[in-house]
Design a protein around this nucleic acid. Sequence first.
DNA 1: TGGGATAACATGGGATTTCATGGGAGGTCA
DNA 2: TGACCTCCCATGAAATCCCATGTTATCCCA
Lengths: 156, 156
Amino acid sequence: MAGFVSHFTNRLDAKGRVSIPASFRAVLAKDGYEGLYCIASSHSAAVDAGGNDLLAQIQTRLDAFAKLTPDHDALAIALFGASETPKIDGDGRVVISDMIRDHTGITDQVTFAGLGYKFQIWEPERFREHRAEAAKRALAMLSGQVVPAQAQGGLA
Amino acid sequence: MAGFVSHFTNRLDAKGRVSIPASFRAVLAKDGYEGLYCIASSHSAAVDAGGNDLLAQIQTRLDAFAKLTPDHDALAIALFGASETPKIDGDGRVVISDMIRDHTGITDQVTFAGLGYKFQIWEPERFREHRAEAAKRALAMLSGQVVPAQAQGGLA
DNA sequence: TGGGATAACATGGGATTTCATGGGAGGTCA
DNA sequence: TGACCTCCCATGAAATCCCATGTTATCCCA
C-alpha cells in the first residue's frame, strides 16, 4: 500500500465535521490505530495527521531523552501539548477543533493532502499556495541543485 | 494508545474539586492504577500526575541507588515527600490539595497537559508561558542543537 | 461498448449520550 | 458541634450515534 496519497477537499458541516477521504480511512484502518492522531506542524499552517506510523515518529524523537528530565518534559509538552486524538465517527468524520482552526485558518472547507506515512490538513487556499511553492522546491531538488540534508532535520 | 495527549482547562468548584479530562481518565483506567499518583515537579511550577507508568519511572530513578544508603534515603524522602495520592470520586473529580496550590499557584482554574506517560497540572497562565518556552526549546532540540543527555542523568 | 443497476461516499440533521459543573445530604473526625 | 469530606443527583452544553438523501463512481450484462 502506498500510504496516504493525493489530495481531497471536503466541506465542513454546521456541526464542524468533515468526512475524512475514504482512501485515507482505508490506510488508517490498515495501520490499526483507533481514531486519528493530529499534531500542529511546527513549520507551516497545517496539521499533521495519521495513525501509529506518525505516532511512532514522534515517540522516537522523545525517546532520545531520558524521562523525568527538563528536556524530556519540554519536548513532550511541545509535542503532545500541540496534539489531539479526535474520534472518527461511524461515517468516517471528525470534528475540526478550535486548535486546528486556529493553526490552519480553516473556516468552511478542508483540504486533505497525502504525504505517504501521514497526511496534512489545510485551509484550501493556503494549500494551493503551499503546493505551488513545494512544486518549485521539488523541481530544484530533483534536478540535483539541492543536496539532501542529513537525518536530524526538523520534525516532519 | 498514545497515553496522555493534548491539554484541557477545567474550572475549580466551590469545594476545590476539578474534573479530570475524560480522555485522561480513560488512560488511567487502562493503566490500571487505582486513583491518581501526584508529585511536585522538581524543575517547574507544575505537578506531575499519572498512574503505574509514572510510578515505575520514579522507582527506576530510586533503584539507581543502593537501599539503606544516605543517598537512597535522601532521594526517597525528596520524592515521596512531595507526593500525594488523591482519590478520584465517582464523577471523575479530584480535590486540589494545598500542596498542589502552593506549588502551582492554582486559584480557580486548572490546566491538564498530556506528556504521554504522565500529565501535568498547571495554573493556566503559567502553562501558556511554559508552553511557549517549551516550543522554542523543542525546535532547538529537534534541529540537533541540543545533545540528548544520557539516560540516568540527574533528576534536575 | 453502452447504459441501466448497484454500491460507495460525502453531507445533512434528529435523537441520544457523555461530560463538566453545581449543589444537597449524610458521615466522619477532632 | 462544626468543618470537612464522600457519595449522590440535577442540568445544560457539547460530543456522538444513527438514519436519510443526493451524487458520483463502479459493476454487470446484453
